[in-house]
Design a protein around this nucleic acid. Structure first.
Length: 776
DNA sequence: AGCTGTGGCAGGGAGG
DNA sequence: CCTCCCTGCCAC
């Protein structure tokens, strides 16, 4: 490569521009990496296991020999970008569809391995990551939102009579602007948009569902109006790259957009990954999110999607206000969700906006970049699997208190550092080095954060330390990751088994001290402390004592104290906090797919049981029975909502082949003629009157507008209520359970509950079972 | 195109 | 009834 001129100086943050002889390439991260030509993938660099593969093409490549004993010993770089069809053929033939897929027993991995981003960034930026040294607020972020007019009531960018009526823009300096379709025709609007983008020169363009709606819509209208959309940093056009993917017997086309020299951030994607673990959001609509996060302004203008065109005719100024509110909320949402991604960009060899969702990919990119820098060969994945996991046990079923929750701080990372666990293939020792470095960096950042008084700086430091935490916690998972090139299953087993031993040691200690264990899961223990250690100060002291018995570098910390705990089964329990609040954990007790009435019933029952109000539980059960029988409960509370993992086509094929059974969710969707794709949420309820009905035969899809229909199967749901109540049978003697969970109907008197108590019992823990077996 | 792991509970259908 | 097997959701 003759010269590399690369981006991100203060004035012009083009990602990379480089020259190879007579050809100049401008690269915006991945787009330059993988182009498609005549169905042959074209990769500018790749790793090789043997240099022989490219014999005869010497003029076309640079082949860099890498040191060490790992599988891929050569790095290959194209010298020129033209005329190399045959070379590409050689590469593609060795690069079948499996080149990055799971290694299988008996099948050899390809001789060619592609890992684009780290190599790219290494070559482009000589190891310097994007935005290095910058603070989030220095980034020029522009928000964009369009409103469209449609006679038909829904937007279709390709329809001649539809058009863009408003383009609202804002940026983080507080600037706001609306390009108004009353004054300009669409061509003028699109041209003005380009002028503004060039003039204000944002680093980032943000929007809610901007990939799914705004950009493609603008792009299509530009084509129809014969306007070139030159909004790249060097006035190049918006780039569209399509990739095909064979999926469920048909081809899906994936479209992605790039603005050379700028970054696109879609807040919809950010919120999806935010909610992936939390699952607390009802909807991903901008207005709902603004309310949820508390930045919806009180004077916010709300207009229903279907009323946009009508409002445009009747009250265009109102629509302008509405459009501005949209960009303001987008700005705040991005502010909240994109900071940690910004700081990750400074650490990882990825472009902002292209940071991968998966944590293993992030870690691996660090390794590959480092190996490249040292010109060292890279390994291929191990075949096999991890065989052990976290230690989980329950010792008590029923109620107990007061209860302490203590957990080993960063259990797996601490073990990996203290016991020097690292993958066998890591010849350069990067795993330990980067894990230690990132851990130290995080501790420093947290310390700084604690002493920082300025709220803006504090939130920056918080974003930084939380992105570090994400990275650090991924190291363990990466060891057992089947597709990780540096994976090492036995190292993963060492980590989990060491963790198990540490937890067993804690359990034995607490028991011999006279404490009572309730539940243990992976790195945390719930227990009633020994008699003399029950108030806050003493609890802290006790946990500190326990911690001292652990190996160097492994620390136990007090995480919480609770007045009472209701222990149901492993990973399923409820906690009563000092202030009266209740936390419920576990899919058997809280689940988003569960009918709302059931969630309510379980939550209320738990609350009453924790407060020892068994008469209350009895009445509650009676009330719910009555409310179901009289259809007093609206339909929306009887609905189950399930997320499906397959399309209807895949489902039907699986049923045909006997690979799976019919299920209510799919049958409801099919009966209603609704499509379902992986990830679709299907809401349904059971109709008819037979209580023992097979649910898939009587499942009906639920629509939001049908709340008042109430045509649900009363008998089925009464039975269902009984099944939910069955969960509580674990907490009573059988005869007591029958007294508490009985429906009095027209009886004048309820059965007396005087002698009824919560029956807390010891569970034979897995540990004891093992001991018994050994004793035999 | 992109994908971190194991452990555990519940429900439902099918078949014995 | 019971067991097996699958799916979905969740804890960590």
């Amino acid at each position: 490569m003759d010269s590399i001129l690369f981006g991100h100086n203060a004035e012009e943050r083009i990602v990379a521009v480089y020259q190879t002889g007579e050809t100049t390439m401008r690269v915006a991260a991945r787009a330059g990496g993988a182009t498609s030509s005549a169905d042959k993938k074209f990769y500018p660099f790749f790793f090789l296991s043997s240099a022989d593969l490219l014999k005869g093409f010497d003029r076309k490549f640079w082949i860099v020999e890498l040191a060490g004993n790992n599988f891929y010993k050569y790095l290959c770089i194209f010298r020129k970008w033209g005329d190399m069809r045959s070379a590409i053929r050689v590469v593609s033939e060795n690069l079948d569809a499996d080149h990055q897929s799971m290694p299988r027993e008996g099948s050899e991995l390809p001789e060619v391995y592609v890992k684009l981003d780290p190599v790219f960034q290494f070559l482009m930026q000589t190891g310097t990551t994007l935005f290095k040294g910058m603070e989030f607020h220095e980034l020029r972020r522009m928000q964009l939102d369009i409103e469209t007019f449609s006679k038909a009531g829904f937007s279709d960018a390709s329809r001649a009579e539809d058009r863009i009526i408003l383009i609202s823009l804002s940026d983080n300096s507080g600037w706001e602007y609306v390009i108004n379709g009353r004054e300009k025709n669409e061509t003028e609007m699109l041209n003005e948009l380009q002028e503004i983008i060039r003039e204000r020169d944002p680093d980032v363009i943000e929007g809610h569902n901007i990939y799914g709606f705004d950009i493609p819509y603008i792009k299509r209208r530009c084509e129809m109006n014969r306007v070139k959309l030159r909004i790249g940093r060097d006035s190049t056009e918006l780039k569209v790259s399509t990739s095909r993917q064979a999926y469920a017997e048909r081809e899906l086309e994936r479209i992605s957009y790039e603005i050379p020299g700028r970054h696109i951030i879609d807040t919809l994607l950010l919120i999806q990954s935010y909610d992936a673990t939390r699952r607390e959001l009802e909807s991903y609509g901008l207005k709902n999110l603004a309310k949820h996060f508390g930045f919806a302004s009180e004077s916010r203008t709300y207009i229903e999607g279907s009323k946009i065109s009508e409002t445009w005719r009747k009250d265009p100024d109102l629509l302008v206000k509405y459009a501005l509110d949209d960009v303001r909320e987008t700005r705040q949402l991005a502010e909240l969700l994109s900071q940690s991604r910004f700081y990750l960009t400074q650490m990882l060899p990825f472009n902002y906006g292209q940071i991968p969702g998966g944590s293993a990919t992030k870690i691996e990119s660090l390794f590959v970049r480092e190996y490249l820098r040292k010109k060292h060969s890279i390994p291929k994945p191990q075949i096999g699997r991890q065989t052990s996991g976290g230690y989980t046990d329950v010792f008590l079923q029923g109620t107990a208190g007061p209860v302490i929750h203590a957990d080993v701080e960063s259990l797996y990372p601490s073990i990996m550092i203290s016991y020097k666990v690292s993958p066998a293939s890591d010849e350069l020792g990067i795993f330990q080095k980067s894990l230690k470095h990132l851990t130290r960096l995080r501790l420093d950042t947290k310390k700084q954060m604690r002493s920082e008084t300025d709220t803006v700086k504090r939130s920056q430091l918080d974003a930084m330390q939380s992105s570090l935490k994400i990275l650090i916690n991924s190291f363990y998972g990466y060891l057992g990751y089947s597709r990780g090139i540096f994976n090492d299953y036995s190292a993963a087993d060492v980590v989990t088994e060491t963790g198990q031993n540490i937890m067993r040691q804690m359990i034995n200690q607490i028991t011999s001290d006279g404490g009572t264990l309730v539940e243990v899961d992976t790195d945390g223990l719930y227990f009633v402390p020994p008699r003399d250690f029950r108030n806050e100060v003493e609890s802290n002291k006790y946990v500190a004592n326990l911690s001292r018995s652990l190996p160097e570098g492994i620390n136990l910390a007090l995480d919480g104290r609770y007045d009472k705990m209701l222990s149901y089964k492993k990973k399923n329990y409820a906690l009563l906090e000092g202030d009266g609040r209740i936390k419920i954990r576990g899919s058997a007790l809280v689940s988003r797919s569960m009918e709302k009435f059931a969630r309510e019933f379980i939550r209320k029952s738990i609350e009453l049981i924790l407060r020892e109000d068994l008469k209350g539980v009895h009445d509650l059960f009676g009330d719910y029975t009555k409310m179901i029988m009289s259809r007093e409960i609206p339909l929306d509370k009887m609905v189950r909502t399930e997320t499906v993992r397959e399309s209807i086509e895949e489902y039907e094929a699986a049923v045909r082949n006997g690979k799976r059974n019919r299920t209510a969710s799919f049958e409801a969707a099919i009966a209603a003629g609704v499509t379902a794709r992986p990830g679709s949420r299907i809401s349904y309820y059971i109709t008819g009157s037979d209580p023992g009905t097979r649910s898939f035969q009587n499942a009906r899809l639920y629509f939001d507008s049908e709340k008042e229909k109430r045509d649900y199967n009363v008998n089925y749901y009464v039975r269902k209520l009984g099944e939910y109540a069955e969960r509580f049978a674990e907490f009573f003697k059988p005869e007591d359970f029958r007294k508490v969970f009985s429906f009095d109907g027209d009886l004048l008197f309820s059965p007396p509950l005087d002698g009824v108590r919560i029956d807390t019992r010891e569970v034979v823990s897995d540990e004891q079972k093992v001991e018994e077996e050994e004793g035999e």
